[in-house]
């Protein structure tokens, strides 16, 4: 027999722990001056997020988060961060007016989300029953029902690839020309 108050099952404890880790590491990440530090903290946040996914019954997504988000995207970020030597003076904090605006925005948002979350009423308080979507079942469902979306997503990735190649090619040529001029 469950009591009215939330029983702290192990799952709930895990959830709150992971939530804390995510929030704290993200908060730290956004406040770092050093971009590499920021990226690393964000990696930690994504790891915790992957574990959260696993908790919420999506093991495939957890793995995909680590492989794609952390392994590809954040690595790419680190490559570019380390490639671009930024002049230290330009990374100034925002002007004071901007800070005010940003703070106001943040407050508005917090207000909005809290209101929204708690205005949904008892429907929002439904406890989540644990369930797991096995990768096989998930894959079958995905490719049976949403094969068109998958195709489009792959097309999108192809386009992104071509675009990046083109941008990189032009930039490389220009840089080469610049180096030629300097010589």
């Amino acid at each position: 027999m469950f009591r009215r108050q939330t029983t702290m099952t192990i799952y709930a404890l895990l959830f709150y722990l992971l939530a804390a880790v995510i929030l704290v590491s993200t908060a730290i990440a956004v406040t770092r001056r050093n971009l590499v530090h920021a990226a690393i903290f964000l990696v930690a946040s994504f790891f915790a997020s992957a574990l959260l996914f696993y908790l919420l019954g999506a093991p495939l997504l957890a793995m995909l988060e680590i492989i794609v988000y952390v392994g590809a995207i954040m690595v790419l970020f680190l490559f570019v961060i380390m490639m671009l030597k930024e002049k230290p003076a330009s990374n100034r904090p925002a002007a004071r007016g901007r800070k005010l605006w940003t703070a106001t925005l943040g407050l508005i948002y917090l207000l909005a989300v809290i209101l929204l979350v708690f205005a949904t009423g008892p429907r929002g308080q439904t406890p989540l029953t644990p369930a797991v979507a096995s990768p096989a079942a998930f894959g079958r469902y995905l490719f049976q029902g949403h094969w068109l979306g998958i195709e489009i997503a792959s097309l999108l990735l192809l386009i992104a690839l071509i675009g990046v190649l083109h941008l990189g090619h032009t930039a490389a040529r220009r840089t080469a020309a610049g180096i030629e001029e300097e010589k």
Partner: peptide, 20 residues
Amino acid sequence: LQARMMLIFVVMALLSLYFL
């Protein structure tokens, strides 16, 4: 750039409040 992004988010928040 960022001012415009801010504008987007403000409008989104206000819209959500409106729909609520």
